[in-house]
Amino acid sequence: MIVVTGASRGLGEAICHRLLEKDERVVGLARSANALEFEGISCDVGDYQSVKSAARQIRKIGERVDAVINAAGVASMNLAVTTDEATVQKVIQTNLVGTIFCCQLFAPILLRQKSGAFINFSTIAVALALKGESVYAASKAGVEAFSKTFAREMADFNVKVNCIAPGPIRTDLLRGITDAQIEKITSQQVISRQFEKSDVCDVVELLIDAKASSLSGQVFHIGGV
């Protein structure tokens, strides 16, 4: 079984569909699980009790959890000085604190199994310090630092923790971003083109494969930096 947060749209939804095509049992977590076309549990990742309840429900299913993929996230494309307080709080709470809550509260399931993987999401905005994404980058830099350290905490239990850092992928998070702005970002990648959701899904598949058992504590940049 694979648990995916942020399952109702964007990368989370794409990852769910990819894994379902591969005949994996997928349980999607989303604020509105009723809207999911597949098995889902309602969960607000920024709410500790909500994540605790979801973890309890997952544990009650009684199947092995092979991976927890923390794809839930929100973006803020604004200069720091023009970002309002509520948006700052929401971005940090959903992206960083939500990822931490999900790792903390699902970890006991994987620790008992002595197997499994966490995949968390960062962004190219961290490596490139992209102007206009300071708050978003701060939340994701925290995810990277947490993931690298959490990986060491989980290593003795054979649980892997890695980060995927996409560049500009066509999802709702890019609403309002022009092609010129996208090209300015992708031109700084090792492979200078815009990648798709399917490319991210490819890396997710790689990281949950048994052949990736030597990889933990790493940040994988789609397109490279």
Partner: peptide, 13 residues
């Protein structure tokens, strides 16, 4: 610390 986590998980069970 990790052994303590193991103990806590066992007590949870």
């Amino acid at each position: 610390s990790m052994k303590l986590v193991e103990v806590c998980l066992a007590l949870e069970d």
